[in-house]
């Protein structure tokens, strides 16, 4: 990209800054209660008069069926697992999330790329490679991390269902019993999450607390969070998307 083009895109981004939507990510291991909190948060945002949309992990209409079929066949290696989820993420980012943010909608994400970083690292993949697979990185405005002990996650999951093959990490633990495998795997995942929470400054919510108390804290932390410009590392992803969607700047003109 020429310097002139780069400057033009940056001017566009600056003009959009005041009206863009916010991206709020809910992260944490299975059984941490983040989906419950995400729903409560969305309801509250709507009541506050915001336009809100939700995006869920591995949910794109194009890639999800490919992943689902291969999970059912238990046919995925850690690399394939990582690359297919990255394709699903990129597809949603470029076709759903960025257009929504650009149009001023607040996007609430049930899991973000940190899910991949934690799970794929727990599967033994090199962290820097996984990060590259997800490049250019797009960072949320705020990440709520629902922190629970591995035992809590295991107990909550076991109370409702049998963990699925990949959810239990049976592809790497080699354990036949899904519950035993889940306990082993989720301990590794939570270890990775805890490190990510420090490095990337997540807002950590103690997910062992009551549902009401967690929701109160989320509202409070969200209201306290200052509205900041797009983080510098989001610029590459935004410019990449804008350059492939020449119609997007017209949305700016109308705004």
């Amino acid at each position: 990209m020429s310097r002139r083009d780069g400057q033009r895109w940056r001017e566009l981004l600056n003009r959009r800054e005041a009206t863009r939507g916010l991206l709020v990510a809910f992260e944490g291991p299975d059984g941490s209660g983040k989906t419950t909190q995400r729903k409560l948060f969305k309801t509250w945002l709507k009541a506050e008069g915001r336009e809100v949309s939700t995006t869920k992990w591995n949910s794109s209409p194009l890639i999800k069926p490919l992943v689902k079929a291969r999970k059912q066949a238990r046919a995925l290696s850690p690399e394939e697992f990582c690359l297919l989820h990255a394709a699903d993420f990129r597809y949603r980012l470029e076709t759903e999330i960025l257009p929504a943010l650009w149009a001023g909608t607040t996007v609430v994400a049930d899991r973000w790329l940190f899910t991949a970083l934690a799970r794929d690292a727990a599967r033994g993949l090199a962290f820097d490679w996984v990060l590259q697979v997800y490049a250019p990185i797009f960072w949320p405005d705020i990440v709520f991390y629902f922190s629970v002990a591995p035992e809590t996650s295991s107990t909550r999951i076991a109370a409702t269902r049998t963990p699925k093959f990949y959810e239990a990490g049976q592809d790497i633990t080699g354990l036949d019993d899904p519950f035993t495998s889940y306990r082993t795997f989720i301990s590794r995942v939570i270890r990775e999450y805890d490190e990510l929470a420090v490095v990337f400054r997540f807002v950590t919510i103690d997910a062992e607390q009551s549902i009401n108390e967690q929701h109160r804290q989320i509202r409070e932390r969200f209201q306290q969070a200052e509205r900041r410009p797009w983080p510098e590392w989001n610029v590459e992803a935004l410019v990449d998307w804008l350059s492939r969607h020449p119609e997007a700047p017209r949305v700016v003109a109308r705004a």
Partner: peptide, 19 residues
């Protein structure tokens, strides 16, 4: 359904190559 983007297609090629 919206078509895959160039980066998505490349990631899918990489997944196929891993297979």
């Amino acid at each position: 359904v919206a078509r895959p983007t160039t980066r998505t297609l490349t990631l899918l090629y990489a997944a196929d190559l891993a297979f």
